[in-house]
């Protein structure tokens, strides 16, 4: 996995979580709970923990499991979360075909978008996180990095 931040590694007192899960949606809530638990320990706000981190990470993991790995038995999703008192940086890596995050994003707020069943995942990640980016230069699969500063 890439380093946890472009400008620094984990600082003193940071919590680091490295996990690898099968491409099974049933595995997602456990990962989310583990990251939220660490954000709570680092005194992120109630809403940051229960809404921003929880939903954005659910979306990133669901994308990796369902769209990236297509729920294949032989592919895994790797998660590295670094939390300290300043911010959360979490990388979600799949083993699927490369994709363009911007091209995949839709606008769910248009009259047509409002009535669509899909198309809200990337939108929600971007609204709930300070930054959402697909890291360049990954030799295999995709890494989506979510960053949230502690308010």
């Amino acid at each position: 996995m890439p380093a946890p931040g472009p400008d620094r590694g984990p600082g003193a007192g940071a919590s680091v979580l490295d996990l690898s899960i099968p491409s099974d949606v049933a595995e997602i809530p456990g990962v989310v709970d583990a990251v939220v638990e660490r954000c709570t320990a680092h005194r992120f706000s109630r809403q940051a923990c229960s809404l921003n981190v929880r939903v954005a990470l659910l979306e990133a993991l669901a994308n990796a499991v369902v769209k990236g790995n297509r729920q294949a038995d032989d592919k895994r999703v790797h998660v590295r979360a670094v939390v300290d008192d300043a911010r959360l940086v979490v990388d979600v890596q799949d083993e699927g075909e490369p994709f363009d995050l911007d091209a995949s994003a839709q606008d769910p707020l248009t009259p047509e978008g409002l009535l669509r069943e899909d198309g809200r995942g990337i939108f929600l990640m971007r609204r709930l996180m300070d930054a959402v980016e697909r890291l360049p230069g990954i030799p295999r699969g995709n890494v989506v990095r979510l960053t949230l500063r502690r308010a």
Partner: peptide, 14 residues
């Protein structure tokens, strides 16, 4: 209910 994700919202729309 604790939380809903985009696919849950999508099911409600559907």
């Amino acid at each position: 209910t604790g939380y809903i994700d985009s696919s849950g919202l999508g099911v409600l729309v559907s």
